[in-house]
Structure formats: C-alpha cells, structure tokens
Simulated scan of single mutants.
Amino acid sequence: MSKSSNTSSALTLDSSNPLYLHPSDHPGMILVAKSFDGTGFGAWKRAMTIALLAKNKLSFVNGISITPTNPSFLAQWQRCNDTVISWILNTLSGDISASVLYTETAHNLWVELNDRYGQVNGAKLYQLQKSICAISQGSGDIATYFTKIKAIWDELNALNSIPPCSCGVSHLLAKREEVQRLVQFLMGLNSSYDSIRGNILMMKPLPSISEAYAILIQDENQREIHSTNIFSTESSSMNANSRNSYSRFENMKSEVCTHCKKSGHTSNKCYRLVGFPKDFKFIKTKRFSANNASSEADVTEQKEQAPLGLTSEQIGDLLQLLQKSYS
C-alpha cells in the first residue's frame, strides 16, 4: 500500500470527530446574532459556547483538542483551528477583533478574551445586585417582569457559579439561593397580587420559581377573563339603556296634543289646560306659531287686567268705594 493511500484512509473522518468539517462550515459564518463590543461578555460567551458545541468545535477553545502529533492530521487540525478563529472574529467588534487578530490558536484567543473581559470584579457584582433590588413589575405583565429578573439571575450565575461536590453541600446552597430568588421575585410584584403572594409564601414546602411563576400566570389570566366579562356586561347595559332612551324619545315625538297641536305630550298633560308650573319660564323667539302668540297674549291680558294680583271685579268694587267716599 502506498503512502498516499495510507494518508487518505487516515483522513477519512467520522462526523462525530472534532476534526470533521461539514461542507457548509466556512470561515465567513456568523454563529451568534449579536456581536461583542466589550459589554455583556457573559451573555456573548454563553451564546458562543452553545454555537461551538453544536458545531462540535468546543474542544478547540477549551484546550482539549491540541496540535496533533500525527502529521497526517496536522493540516486538518489547522483548518479546523483557523475556521474556529474566524467564527470568533466574526462576532467581535472592529477594535477588539483587530487586537486579537494575530492569535495563533483558538484556545489562546478564547483565554485572552476571558482574561480581558471575563474577570469577576466587585463593581460588576454591585451593579447586578443593585439592579435586582431596583427591579419591580411596574406597569408590565408578569412575563415581562420575570424575563427581566431572570436575565440578571443568569448573569449572576455566570459570574458566581457553585462548583459541584460529592458531599451534597452544593445542593443545599443551590436550594437556599433558589428560595432567596423566589422571595426577590415575589417582592417585586404589584400590590394587586398581595393575596396570591401570601398564598405562595404559606405553601410548605415553598414552590420552585417555575411553579410560582405558573401560579401567578394562571391568576393573571383569570383576572383578564374577569375584567373582560365585566366590560362586556357594562357595554351591554349601556347599549340597552341607550336603546330604551331612544325608544322613549321616539314615543314622545309620536305623541300630539289635541288642544295645542304640539308634539311631545298629550292633552291631559298640556300646561294650557292643567296650568303652568310656578318655575315655568317663557322663551321669546323671533318666530312664533299661532298657538304660542295667542297663549302669550292671553297671559299679557291677564297681567294687564290683574295688576297687583287683583281681578277686574275687585278693581270695579274698589273704584265704587272710592267714589262713595268722595261724594
């Protein structure tokens, strides 16, 4: 067997091998949507880790896949290493990309970015803890509020992860931390959720954050259904009242008085027959109907014939008494 045939058989790689490159794997690929500009390193690192793991190339950045000693695989390893470097550079901003452009291996590039941006410091922890204390539901719904606080929790986990152990202490610490975060989540709810919040805190044992979130979402949905029913009932009542008022108005328009020939009332309620109320006010207009003119003339005549509240007969009697007294 020739040397070229041995090399060809050696380079026949399975798709599960980290040195295998799919035909679609090219250096210009962008694995994550948001580029890294120096802020939010934890989120960018998490997204890149997921993408590289999906491509089966995470071993090139964590140092597991090192330069092979077999010359037959050296060229293929270099192709994979340069491809991973290109993928990382494609997600960095221009200044950061230029500062790490000459790094030889993907592992060294990954370590340099971690040393530069991934160090945990007191200022970052202070900022995250302050954000936790200041966040609340406000005018948003439960889902929006939970998404905001969950993002801060995830960033804290990336900075302060609890290492696993065989004694079970890590499990107890994780449980205590979950209880603290449940209380933080409930503290930020609006006062309208005081009742359901009290019910959750009285549960023994305390529910997980996911269970408490499901309970609150169910309560929120019930509130929306109840408010929708109330609104529908009020709208139906308003429509019914409007229809009744319109019907009464139409009925009044159809009524015509047989005495004054005006619409809106009948003869048994006509003021010209039953008398005008004491607080009734006549409104003078430029145009009068024959009935209005005659009615106002009658009222004026009555006023002229009855000054000071006296009738015409009383005035005649008074004049006779005056004549007798001067005769």
Results as ranks from 00 to 15, higher is better:
N229K: 14
A240H: 03
L53R: 15
F280E: 07
L125E: 07
L19G: 03
S254H: 08
L319A: 14
I217Q: 06
C260S: 02
I66F: 06
T147A: 13
S86C: 09
E178R: 07
D194E: 10
Y246W: 09
K3R: 13
Q137A: 03
D95M: 08
K324E: 13
I315E: 06
T39C: 09
A174E: 09
S242I: 05
T311A: 05
L113P: 03
S237W: 06
L201S: 05
S59T: 11
E234M: 05
N239W: 00
E211Y: 04
L128Y: 15
F231N: 08
P164L: 05
S227C: 09
T103A: 04
K324Y: 07
E234P: 01
R46L: 11
I225E: 05
M187E: 13
C80S: 09
T67K: 14
S237V: 02
P205A: 04
V32M: 00
F41A: 00
G264D: 02
F288M: 15
V61H: 01
F73D: 03
I225H: 01
C257L: 01
K324S: 15
L189K: 05
V183L: 11
L58P: 00
S289Q: 00
H226F: 12
S131M: 15
A158I: 10
R248L: 14
S195T: 15
W110A: 07
